[in-house]
């Protein structure tokens, strides 16, 4: 027992183990998603998180230990955002032609999200710090946490709400758009990126590269607009 235990203690503390667990769980989740024909409910982020979360719970591993290995994957979010420039560049003519609909949809989408979140949270009698933490929930997590903190919310709670919003949006977008019979991949992608930031963008890239391109643009534009609108909207109320 002593030998096995010291091996476990060693492995559990190196980045190798948790990096391997993250990648293996993702490969498995991707296989499951592919086997369902990329059904929206078989969201690869959700499945991987459940798998890894279960391993951590069973092994009693604290999150900071896990993150030491997983940080290499987490780091790639930045470079992945930078290379959204490539599909954008390849389709720049298509994007330029859709500039007016994009700006209109951005303004309407960002304003609606804030109004619905703040209005509904008020109706349900949620306490003010939670309403503030909710306000930027459709924005990419780094910016959302900054907005929440600056306005007196709880950035950790905001990060949780942002990730949950991303997963909900990525699951809802395809059935909703199909029900509305909207086949314009530009519009579908733009909505996914605006409502569900990077997780919605990842889903959009699974469906079509045009959708992914427009989702990436929406994610960037909404981060900018919500950072301006959220303080204004909350100021009107409190």
């Amino acid at each position: 027992m002593g030998g096995d235990f010291s091996l476990w203690v060693y492995l559990a503390r190196t980045p190798l183990l948790w990096l391997t667990v993250t990648l293996t769980a993702y490969v498995l989740a991707d296989r499951i998603a592919a086997a369902t024909g990329r059904h929206p409910i078989a969201n690869p982020v959700l499945i991987t998180v459940v798998l890894v979360g279960s391993v951590l719970a069973v092994s009693g591993t604290p999150y900071p230990t896990y993150f030491e290995g997983a940080q290499f994957v987490h780091f790639l979010l930045g470079p992945a955002t930078v290379v959204l420039a490539m599909p954008l560049y390849e389709r720049r003519a298509t994007v330029a032609r859709a500039l007016v609909p994009m700006l209109a949809a951005l303004a309407a989408g960002a304003a609606t999200t804030l109004a619905v979140v703040i209005g509904l949270a008020g109706l349900l009698d949620l306490p003010q710090p939670i309403v503030i933490s909710l306000a930027p929930k459709s924005v990419t997590s780094g910016v959302a946490m900054g907005i929440s903190e600056a306005l007196g919310g709880d950035p950790t709670l905001t990060a949780i709400l942002v990730i949950l919003t991303g997963i909900i949006g990525a699951i809802l977008v395809t059935p909703l758009m199909d029900a509305l019979q909207i086949r314009d991949m530009r519009a579908r992608g733009f909505a996914a990126g605006l409502a569900a930031h990077g997780i919605g963008t990842a889903r959009a890239f699974q469906v079509s590269e045009v959708a992914g391109t427009f989702a990436g643009i929406a994610m960037g534009l909404n981060a900018f607009l919500t950072a301006i609108l959220a303080p204004l909207a909350l100021h009107l109320l409190y």
């Binding site: 890894v52 992945a80 990060a159 990077g198």
Partner: peptide, 24 residues
Amino acid sequence: TARGLLMNLSLMFVPAGVGVVGRL
């Protein structure tokens, strides 16, 4: 290289997502 990163965008949300499980 860009395409390779974007194809696996979902993977990069996993570490943050796992953090959510711990703070539910």
